[in-house]
Every structure is written in structure tokens, then in C-alpha cells.
Computed example of a mutant assay.
Amino acid sequence: MIEAYLAELDAALRGPRRAKTDLLAEARDHLVEATESYEHSGFSRQEAETAATRDFGALEDIVPGYQAELGWTQGRRTALMVLFVFAVQPFIWGIAYPRVAVTTIDSPADEVVENLGGLTILLALLMVLAYRIGMRHPAVRQRITRITGLATIVVCVLFIAFGALLTALSPDGLVLLWMITFILAPMSWTALSAWRCLATAVR
């Protein structure tokens, strides 16, 4: 009965694999401990498992709290990913690229990208801070995962679009390689994490 209960709980939850595994392991430990306690009180194994799962709670009552925790984990991971990806962009394009490029990127779009990058870094810092604040404020916890996912997807789409524009405007073929490596790949990776935020957010 415990394994059947845990299988249903597993099927109902969406989120990072490791965090989900940890939550299910904690639930299993609690149920096994409760079952053993009932057995020591004279219950049969089946009766003890029935009582343990009943005490643990119905799935419709348990799942929202567990799902919120998984969404929280995914959202915080995405916020940190955005901060890392955009924090290294000034080094990649301001220091590394000019050392190997034949020509430099010089267009109004380049300035827009730099300003948008700085704004995104600030936004990512605020999101990371919001996750720290949200640990003490349930109202923040309920909304921040979805906000993180939506904001990150918008930013990633904008940067991919501007990256394509800069590639088209530059005569240097190296720009295409760098755009794929340092814009398209990391932005797609980050957008996927953001999509998972929307999938794990409690509705």
C-alpha cells in the first residue's frame, strides 16, 4: 500500500528529478516509520500501512504543498542560471571576442543588447533576492516561480532575436559561430529551464 501511494504521488508531481526523489524518499521514510509504530501497537502489516497512509494525508491535500516546493526549487535554479549566463556575456563579447575577431560589431543594436544585458543581470539579482525573501512570505512563494519562468522566456527570446540581427549585420563569419555558442545555446538552455518553471508552478 505504501509503494502504491508513493507511485501515485510520484505520478502527480512535476519538477527537478533530484528534488523530487528527495521528497519521495522523505515521504517513504515517514510512512515506513509510522507503519512500524502501528505494528508495534498490535496492528497487522496491512492495517498499519493503511493507517500510516491515512495519517499522511490524501493525495489531493499533499500534492499542492509538494508541488510548490518543487516549483520553488526549479524557479531558484532558473534565476541563478540567468544570473550566471548573463554575467559572463560582458567578458565573452567585450574581452574575449575582440581578441579573435577580424572585425568588431558596431551597430545601434549592439548598444541595445549591452543595455538589455545589464538590465537582465539586475533583474536576475532581484529574482535571486526574491527567492530568499519568499522563504518567509507564502504570498511570494505562490507567484514567483511563474513570474521567473515568464520573464526568463521573454528575455531569452529577445536576446536570440538581437543575436540573429547582429549576425546578419556583421560581415565577420566568426560572429555566427560565437552567436550559436554563446547566445543561441545558453539562451535555449535557459529558456528550457524557464519552461520547466511554468510546468512546475502551482496553478
Rank of each mutant, 00 (worst) to 15 (best):
E49W: 08
L177R: 05
L150W: 07
C197S: 09
G134C: 01
M135P: 04
T104G: 11
E3L: 06
L129N: 11
F86P: 01
S44Y: 11
R136T: 13
L174Q: 09
V155N: 03
G173M: 02
T148I: 01
I121T: 06
V88R: 08
G75R: 03
D22Y: 13
W178V: 06
I133N: 06
F162E: 10
T104I: 06
T103F: 03
A34M: 15
G163F: 05
R54L: 14
A79P: 02
R136E: 12
A139G: 10
W189R: 02
R143P: 06
T148M: 00
P90Q: 09
L83F: 14
T104V: 09
A199C: 09
G118P: 04
L24K: 08
A19I: 11
G94W: 05
A96C: 10
V128R: 00
W93K: 04
I92Y: 06
G15N: 04
V157Y: 04
I105A: 01
L184H: 02
V155Y: 02
T200F: 03
W189N: 02
A168D: 02
V128D: 01
E47W: 10
E33W: 11
I147P: 00
P16A: 10
V113I: 13
L176Q: 01
L158C: 12
P16L: 13
I144R: 12
I105G: 01
E39N: 05
D29R: 14
F84N: 07
L83G: 01
W72E: 13
I153R: 04
A68K: 15
R54D: 15
V175G: 00
L192A: 14
C197V: 09
V128M: 00
W178S: 05
D61Q: 13
S188K: 07
Q46P: 03
P90L: 10
L31R: 08
Y97E: 01
R28F: 06
A161E: 10
T190E: 08
W195V: 12
N115W: 15
A79E: 06
L24S: 11
A52D: 04
L31A: 04
V128L: 02
T50P: 02
L123N: 09
D10A: 13
F182H: 09
D10C: 04
R99V: 14
A96P: 03
R28C: 04
N115G: 14
R76E: 15
Q74T: 04
K20P: 04
Q89R: 05
H30A: 15
G94V: 04
A19G: 14
M187T: 12
A164P: 01
E26S: 08
L192Y: 15
V157I: 15
V32T: 14
G42R: 09
W189T: 08
R136C: 10
T104Y: 03
L123E: 10
P108D: 07
A130Y: 05
P171A: 01
A194R: 07
M187V: 08
M81F: 14
V202I: 13
V102M: 04
F159S: 03
I92G: 02
F43T: 10
I95S: 09
T148H: 00
R99H: 12
A34P: 01
A194K: 07
R143C: 12
E26L: 06
I62F: 08
F56C: 07
S188R: 06
